[in-house]
Simulated assay, not measured.
Amino acid sequence: MSRHGVALVFRQEFLVRYRTGRWRWLMAAWVGVVFLFTVLFEAGFSSSFSSYRGSLAWAGERWQGIPLFGALMLFVLALALIISPALTAQSINGDRERGTLATLQITRLAAGDIAVGKLLAGWAVGVGALALTLPFVGWSILRGGVGIWRAAVVLFVVALLVGVVCAVSQALSAMLARSITSALLSYVTVFALSLGTLLAFVLALPLSGGGYYGDREDRVWWLVAPNPFVVLADSAPQVPMKRDPKTGDLEAPPVGDPLGEIGRDVRRMRFSPEEERAYYDSYDGSGDWPTSPVWPYGLAFNLLLGAGSVMITVRRLQTPVRELTKGTRIA
């Protein structure tokens, strides 16, 4: 695999995608949906927030971007997981069905050049769609409470998760002869990572052997660690406390933080019942839970899944081919 070969395949694939009119319509629809969500959320939140009076409303005006940013990022991740399989689920078997893949394979391009170049082209479209959300992210920052560092970390994690889904979808495209089958299984994989992990956690919780103390979440927390929404929420930097300009005291956000709340909940799962009881007995009313992050395990799982998918794609593209899947064409 060479840098020049990867760049050559990437440029070719990206130009083909760019010249296709449907992707422009897809990007326009993406911006429209995100815009509509932002407007509706702002209207609903502003209506609810206006019911508060006194110091809470005054203080909350400096934190109003927090719930908007958290809800927006969760919504964007959900949309990204929906469109990501469509970016690469037909990149290999689609070219094979059209008889154009063999044209690349008979050149001096290595299998790694083709696999990585096609993956980067599909991933670039996903990152481009993510970049179109920057104006809405900027609006949430202007609303207050969301730092640039927090926004950058969250966007980076979303981009990584999009890349993982693209890699898995491309591997399925390389392994399966029919493009419709690879696309379907790509969405099944997304379902397994998002809803499937939660379902497995719920089903395993009664079997965790909690005994007198009840269910033992600390024994099955790892089942939800790979969940993309858990990874995103737990990896988001905590919202820093701000100093009240009137009293000089540090204050926590008076408004909800979707990312922070999900992150704290999944981190508490790692505590055993005995540790929770000991902490409550010694709690003096100050500070927050001493927690252990979950996102490193989940993100590592997803990155390994993506790396393994790239290796499978490279292996399936190697020539000469000794055995062909039934119904597969070369040219």
Rank of each mutant, 00 (worst) to 15 (best):
V231Y: 06
A177C: 12
P254E: 08
L176W: 02
P240N: 13
V231L: 03
S169D: 04
C166D: 09
D218M: 07
T189G: 00
E217P: 02
D215R: 11
A204K: 02
Q238H: 12
P258D: 06
G211S: 13
G248Y: 12
L193N: 04
F201I: 03
D244R: 08
S235Y: 08
D249L: 15
L160V: 15
G214A: 06
I262W: 07
A192F: 08
I180S: 14
D215C: 04
V188A: 14
S186A: 13
L193M: 13
V202H: 06
K246I: 14
L195A: 15
A204P: 07
L203F: 14
S208P: 11
V202A: 15
V266K: 05
L185S: 01
G196M: 09
D234G: 04
E261F: 11
V224D: 00
C166A: 15
S169T: 04
F191A: 14
T197E: 01
L223C: 05
Q170F: 02
A225Q: 02
L232M: 09
V231G: 01
A167L: 05
G211C: 09
V168A: 10
V220G: 01
P258V: 10
K242L: 15
L161G: 01
D244G: 08
P253F: 09
L223Q: 03
V165W: 03
G210S: 11
F201C: 00
P245T: 00
T181W: 08
G214Q: 08
G260F: 07
G260S: 12
L176R: 07
I180H: 11
P226G: 07
V157K: 03
I180Q: 13
D234V: 05
D218P: 07
D257H: 11
T247Q: 11
L207K: 02
V255G: 07
L198K: 05
W222D: 01
A183G: 12
V190N: 02
A159G: 15
T247C: 11
R178I: 00
S169V: 01
L250E: 14
S235V: 06
P245E: 04
S208L: 04
P254W: 04
D257E: 13
V165D: 02
L193V: 05
P245G: 06
D215H: 11
L198Q: 10
A252S: 15
E261D: 14
L232D: 02
G209V: 10
V188I: 15
L176G: 01
A177V: 15
P206H: 02
P228D: 04
R216I: 01
A167V: 01
A174S: 13
E251A: 12
F156E: 02
P254M: 10
L160N: 01
G210Q: 08
Q170M: 12
L176D: 01
D265S: 13
R219Q: 10
L155C: 11
A183N: 09
D257T: 12
V158M: 12
L203H: 03
P245F: 02
Y187K: 05
D244Y: 03
L207A: 08
T247I: 14
T189F: 14
L161W: 07
V202S: 12
L205D: 04
T247K: 11
V188W: 11
L161D: 09
S186H: 07
A167E: 03
R219T: 06
T247F: 10
G163V: 05
G210F: 09
L259H: 10
A204D: 04
M175S: 13
A174H: 02
L193D: 03
W222S: 03
G163E: 01
